[in-house]
Design a protein around this nucleic acid. Structure first.
Lengths: 227, 227
DNA sequence: CGTTTGATTGACACGAGTCAACACCAGTGG
DNA sequence: CCACTGGTGTTGACTCGTGTCAATCAAACG
């Protein structure tokens, strides 16, 4: 979906506020009906669900440029929560204004629809990943996805990217225990697929990692570009 | 999203053809760019992905009244496959015509957008289900979801519904082995939560089953009505 | 009837969760 | 400047859930 300049200008004028949100804070609660839409400008957030017994499933990572709650233009209530994993810059825009823009600019509505479909596609790939791939491939697949998505917004280095989240977060995203995630990461390092230097992940050879993870990028669709 | 009568008439005129598709046939292949949109009028189909090693993950069940490929109005390529689990009646409508309708009838576009969002929500609930719930609750949760969705289209009996799919299908939907699914179902029967009579599932007490499965229907959103 | 598909059962091995202890580091405050 | 703290990563021990393989049973079907 290509946006015209007027479309873009209409969108840019929506942001009323940009705030810093500390790590481990909630931006949206399940069941909530938010008044503002939120976009992450910087930092790592995630969608997640908390089960009654306290287990957490991370449903998606939200990185720079992603919108937290495009859904809420159409749907009534948040069906999951959104929270920060690191300190984040969050842009706020009134939902009503955004909705009005979609009515006047059909291309904007189509763009948001497109985003919803890509997110659906990502959720489905995660389903296959968690449901049917062995644990090492799951993690490797996730690291590949993050690599592509971060690259699209210019957040990758030569051979890797900053990954300031914990192993427990990775575990909750891939449906395994934190201890096990730790051992799997060790194995990936031992097999010389990845390495860590502080908070940043080094991918030794992206092709080998993709091969190993059975990673096929088509589910991310054409690909988002940097704004 | 409420559709006007003109909106509805525009939609109804789209169907060019209704065909019978045998069980275990593909309706859409991953990677394909279909010319027609497909709606299931009768029978059970599913979205699924096949991994290189032959494992199958079912991503969603498609029941009467569901559209297989609403995505394709916006996206370029199918990111998953769709196939029948039983013999189905499938309605065909040209994609281009459907797209034209969405351009002329913004409410129709919104309705399709809404469908996409609900499907995204379902996919995310499945993620939490597969990623973090113990196996018995997974299966129970799935049976609850099917109960509500089938009820919405009038396909439930008093205490249950026809479920003409195999245990292997249920296993592929919940990310477990077929043997294990069998044993879990036995446990659910022993605990007097469900029973089978031929192809039809009896739910002994839907509230107890929901309780056990930690089932909360809000992720299905307001709820689709019968057409 | 034979054949096929799906459900069921048992045996077995191993993956993966849990619990608990420890190492390491950065941040904090005295 | 150092002791203390809490969060994170790492390790080992132990148990049990689950997958795999293979055989058997049951029902449907041509």
């Amino acid at each position: 979906v290509e946006l015209s300049k007027t479309d873009k200008r209409a969108l840019e004028n929506l942001t009323t506020d940009v705030r810093i949100v500390e790590a481990h804070r909630n931006i949206l609660d399940e069941g909530e009906r938010p008044k503002n839409a939120h976009a992450i400008m910087d930092g790592f957030s995630c969608r997640y669900k908390l089960l009654p017994d306290g287990k957490r499933q991370i449903l998606d990572f939200i990185i720079s440029g992603d919108i937290c709650d495009g859904h809420m233009i159409i749907l009534a209530k948040m069906d999951h929560s959104v929270g920060t994993l690191t300190r984040c810059n969050v842009a706020y825009m009134p939902h009503k204004a955004l909705f009005d823009v979609t009515e006047k600019h059909p291309k904007v509505a189509q763009a948001l629809w497109w985003i919803a479909l890509v997110q659906e596609s990502i959720a489905r790939e995660w389903l296959a990943n968690i449901g049917r791939r062995p644990h090492a491939k799951r993690l490797a697949h996730l690291l590949c996805e993050l690599s592509l998505r971060l690259e699209a917004v210019g957040l990758t280095e030569d051979h890797g990217y900053a990954l300031p989240i914990t192993q427990a977060d990775l575990a909750d995203a891939t449906g395994m225990s934190a201890v096990h995630a730790n051992r799997i990461l060790q194995r990936l390092r031992r097999d010389d697929l990845i390495a860590f230097h502080g908070n940043s992940l080094e991918i030794k050879n992206i092709e080998r990692l993709k091969d190993f993870a059975q990673f096929n990028s088509t589910y991310l669709h054409p690909m988002r570009r940097s704004p």
